[in-house]
Design a binder for these strands. Sequence first.
DNA 1: GTGAAAGCGCTAACAA
DNA 2: TTGTTAGCGCTTTCAC
Lengths: 329, 329
Amino acid sequence: MGEVARLAGVSASTVSHVLNGTRKVNIATRLRVEAAIEETGYRRNGVARSLAAGRTHTVGLSISALTNPYFGGLVHAVERALSDAGYVLIVGDSHDDVDSERRVVDSLLDRQVDGMIVAPAAGSERTTLPKITCTGTPLVLIDRGVDVGSDQVGPENFSSARSLTEHLLDLGHRRIAVVRGLAGISSTTERFDGYSAALADRGIAIDADLVLDGDSSTDVAEREVHALMSGADRPTALVSLNNSMTIGTLKALRGLNLSIPGDVAFLCYDDFEWSDLFEPKLTAAAQDVETIGVTAVELLLRRIRGLDDAPQRIRVPTTFHHRNSCGCT
Amino acid sequence: MGEVARLAGVSASTVSHVLNGTRKVNIATRLRVEAAIEETGYRRNGVARSLAAGRTHTVGLSISALTNPYFGGLVHAVERALSDAGYVLIVGDSHDDVDSERRVVDSLLDRQVDGMIVAPAAGSERTTLPKITCTGTPLVLIDRGVDVGSDQVGPENFSSARSLTEHLLDLGHRRIAVVRGLAGISSTTERFDGYSAALADRGIAIDADLVLDGDSSTDVAEREVHALMSGADRPTALVSLNNSMTIGTLKALRGLNLSIPGDVAFLCYDDFEWSDLFEPKLTAAAQDVETIGVTAVELLLRRIRGLDDAPQRIRVPTTFHHRNSCGCT
DNA sequence: GTGAAAGCGCTAACAA
DNA sequence: TTGTTAGCGCTTTCAC
C-alpha cells in the first residue's frame, strides 16, 4: 500500500480512502491511485484491514453433518445470503456433539467472526451458547431452538408433524408408529409432540411400543423398524420424523419385503429430491431450507448492525407434498 | 493481553509464549499467567495474531452447488481434515460460473487464506486459477482437473465410465445411450471418453443421436432423455455420467412409464444413499469423496509447509456397486 | 481535498 | 528464563 501511495504521489490514507470510498477524493487523484493499484497488482490485506477496523466481515457457522443434504442446503442458502452482503462464511462441523461444538465455536470466536449461526447440539445451551453470548458476538440459532436469549429460525415442527399424523388418522389408521430422531433436541421433541397431539385429539392413547428412537442414524432407525415390523402386532402406518429416519425406515421395510402403502402406509417429515422417483412416491412435509437460511442471515446482519430489539423466534412453514405413500389414490 | 501480563507480573511476550508454547517458560510463571488468563477471561485475537505471524491458519474452498450431496460430502471431508490440522475452512460457492468464481477467489485471497482448494468452473484456467498461482497461494484442484501447474485430486473417470459401458456391452446391448454432464469440464470429457473407448473396443461406432447433454441440470437431462425415449428407435440401455443426470434420467423414464431394466437397462456414475432403496436397485460407480477430500487437504498442507516438488495428479478409484438396474439377476 | 500519526493486538528478533 | 522493541498493513481521527 505504501508502494501504491508513492507511485501515485499521495499518502497511504488517500489510497485507503479510494479503496474504500470512505471520503471524497479528487477525481484526478483517484485515477492516479487506481492506475498505481493496477500497475503494482496491489491487493489489500484483509487481515490488517480487519485488525484496524475491528470487523472481519466474516460469519461462523457451526453445524452437524454436512453430508446430510438438509444441512447442505442450509449451508448453501446461508453462504449465498452472506456473500450477497459482502460477508464470508467459515463452517465448522460439530458432529452433534458438545465437545466438538465447543472446539468449533472457540476457533470461530478466536477468529473474531462478526457473528455466528449455530445449529446447536444437544446440551449446548449449558456450555457453548453462553460462551458465545458472553463475548457479545451476535448469534442466531438455526434448525433447533433452545431457551437462550437469542434469535432463532427453524422449521415449523409441531403442526407439520401433527398434520402428517392426522392425515393417517383420517385414512382410518389407528395403530400409527413413529420414528423419532436424535433425543434432546427441540425438533425431535416438537415433532413428536405434534404426533402425540394428533392422537390425543382423537382420543387415542400413545402406545410406547409404537414409538421408535432412531437417534440420528439411519442404521439404528432401520434396526428399530425392522424389529417392530417383524413382530406380530404390526402397526398399519408409520411416520418418520426426519430424513435420516426415513432412509432407515425404508431400508427396513424393503428388507422385510413389506410394501407401501399396501402393508403399511408411510409419511415423512422432510422431503427428498427423489421423493417422486420412489415407488410409491413419498408423501412428505418439506422444509423450506432456503428461507430458513436466508432468514437466519437477515436476523444476524441486523444484530451485527447493532440492532438491539427483543430476540425473535421464527418458524418457517413446511409444505405438504401429497403423493402416494400414504395410500391415497 | 496487556492486562493479563500486568496481572501475572510478566511481559506481553511471556504471555504470548505461554499461549503458544513457543519457548520454555518457568513453570511458576506459566501458572501465574494461566491463572491471569482464567481470571480475566482473556481470549486471543486471531486477527492480530495472523497479521503479526503472517499466517491465518485458514483455507479457502471454492465449490459449486453445495446442494449437490456429492459436493456436500466433499466439503464435509475437507472440513474434517482441516480442522484436525488446526485449520479453519472458508467456503464460497462458485455456481459453476467463472465470474462468481472470480469473486469468491478474490475475497478468499483478500482474506489471506494460507491455501485454496478449488473445484474449477469451466474456463477458470484462463481467469481465476492464474490469479491464485500468481499470488503464490498454495492451490489444489479438486474434482475436475485442468492443465495448470498445481496439485490435483479427482475421481477415476475414464476407466470407471468404460467399465460401466462394458458391463452393458457384455450383457449384449449394442444401442447404449449416454447422458453427459456439464460441457467443458474434465470429468465430463473423461467419462465420455471412457464410454467411447468401450464402444470402440467392440467396434461399435458412436451414434450421435444417443449422446445426450444434460448440462448440469436434472431438468435438461430429463427433457433430453424424455425426447430420446419417446422416439421410435429407442436405445436398449442408458448410462448416466453423474448424479444430477441420473435423477433427470430416472424422472424421464418414470414419466414415460418405462421400466428398468425391462424396457431399458440403466447404469450410473455416482452413487446415492438411496441406491438400493430404488426399484430396481441402481448399479453404479461410487466415488470415494472422503478420500478425495482428505487427499486434497494432505496435498495442500504439504505445499503450505513449503514443500516444492512436482505437482501431483491423483486419481481416486471408484467402487462398482453391482445391483439390479443393469438387468443382471 | 489531503496528509501525519496513532494505534488495532499480537509475534519474534534481539538483548539481557 | 524473561523483557524490550520493532513491526505486521491497514483505518481513522485530527489537523491542515
